[in-house]
Design a binder for these strands. Structure first.
Lengths: 266, 266
DNA sequence: CACCTCGTTTCGTACCGCGAAACCACGTGC
DNA sequence: GCACGTGGTTTCGCGGTACGAAACGAGGTG
């Protein structure tokens, strides 16, 4: 939704129909598997017939599938294919794997690799050893209240940083005062140490530390984080042991990516 | 102006611009990370300015990102987000995990969970213990030459089966004679045992067995497969030990999914 | 049956997206 | 320096596409 500017858009390059179709796909969060036409219309702010046509198109292309009993849609196989095509191109994952595994073993905690998507961090790799608590691949966690998210925001240049904070404020005005305070603390942490903390404010009893990895290929920053039971990962441990190890890991990963084969699609 | 339109079907419901935009995204295979405007135009058969506009739109929405040096695009974070949103709704994965892990341990081989996307099988979960060869999450393998693909085709009703085979024939005419023979053998295997084999014809020295899991939620069949070194997983072992265990596993998974909470979105 | 609710189809019109051609921006050879 | 080649973007008028109000249809309920 939003973006509804029927009068003013001098942006002749922007293809509205495409944008709307993708907006329909975006409706499907992890929470809602089946959405009715009307619900999609409500969420996107589009007219019913429009949704009907877009959904029809998406279904024909395999991005949606419709329940037999009709009138409900769910994400289809093509959507998965698309996401994994994107995932497969992140050779960071391949390079980082052994390091992440090792760190996971050492810390006896979970190690995550995440990318940003709007106001969420999308976990694209997970390693754990005996942790009872697992953020699975595919999980999404909020930017605002996790170390993963804070590390990501911290790594952005000032203007983008500001845009994100503004978006956060608008999205959850009630939480903004506390979020803002925590975020500013995160910036200080990042400047001082190079990593950010998450101390029980996403989930009680879960502490975490995370740091961004900037790649030279123009992609958004990737974030690596360690999380585990608070009694095991006290802030002091995170700051003095886990955090520095995390930074060392990032250095290893960075040099593991051959620095000269950029933009080579082959 | 009266009369007919000789060209496209009068499918007033189909939104062309959306379809084209998604076609652009589809260009990006695992092979090609960066695509130039022209290359996209070539692959999709669209006119250059059209591609330019679609790419612009997709970039603004986060589905693509453009290299600094301009003129090249790669898949962006939103694409990943979309795929994982779809993935997160497959609670099969959650339920199946312990069983898959156990089977992986028992067989000392890799165990995969895959869904179909056109002529590929998309691996959405992987378990391995000490296997040297790993098909990672996100890998795609061909339908035609793998046990995963064969099991999937075997599970389809006759008409769809036919359609897929036809698509396979068109896509790779040269390989069709041998593929057809193998596929027919796969159908016989499936009828006889309930699973299909892959014996070194995708990768030498890799044997595999796979079986489909049909879920009551109207989704396409999901496929579970075991693969490993040929000398460890001889066909006889696959047929007499691993295969039956695989079927038992599917039974467990199926009953693990509470059979009555269908179509219930959040 | 009348009366909901929700999804799809119709249909005329506004306007959106299309693509030939012009326009740029870089490289490259001479 | 210039012509030339290549590859991407912008212009702009036209055709037809996608939009959405309203009509239609399909289930469900009293």
């Amino acid at each position: 939704m939003a973006e509804a500017k029927p009068r003013s858009p001098p942006d002749r390059k922007f293809v509205t129909a495409l944008s709307r179709g993708l907006e329909v796909l975006r409706c499907f969060g992890p929470r809602d598997r089946w959405l009715a036409n009307q619900e999609i219309a409500r969420r996107t702010g589009l007219a019913k017939p429009t949704v009907s046509r877009l959904a029809y198109t998406l279904t024909r292309l395999g991005y949606l599938r419709s329940s037999e009993a009709t009138s409900k849609y769910a994400l289809g196989g093509a959507a998965i294919g698309l996401g994994f095509a994107a995932l497969g191109q992140m050779d960071v994952r391949r390079v980082a794997r052994p390091f992440l595994q090792e760190l996971s073993q050492y810390t006896k905690a979970s190690v995550h690799l995440a990318v940003n998507d709007r106001l969420s961090m999308q976990v694209v790799d997970t390693y754990w050893n005996s942790a009872s608590f697992v953020i699975d691949i595919g999980s999404r966690v909020p930017v605002a209240t996790t170390s993963l998210g804070r590390a990501w925001v911290s790594s952005l240049p000032a203007p983008e940083r500001k845009r994100i904070l503004e978006a956060m404020r608008v999205a959850r005005p009630a939480d903004w005062p506390v979020n803002r305070k925590r975020m500013e603390q995160a910036f200080r942490d990042f400047d001082a140490h190079g990593f950010c903390f998450g101390l029980g404010d996403w989930r009680r009893e879960i502490n975490a530390v995370a740091a961004p990895l900037l790649l030279p290929d123009g992609a958004g920053p990737i974030v690596v984080g360690v999380s585990g039971a608070a009694f095991q990962l006290e802030q002091d441990v995170l700051k003095r042991d886990v955090g520095p190890r995390l930074l060392a890991l990032l250095g290893n990963v960075r040099s593991g990516l051959s620095p000269d084969r950029e933009l080579e699609g082959g």
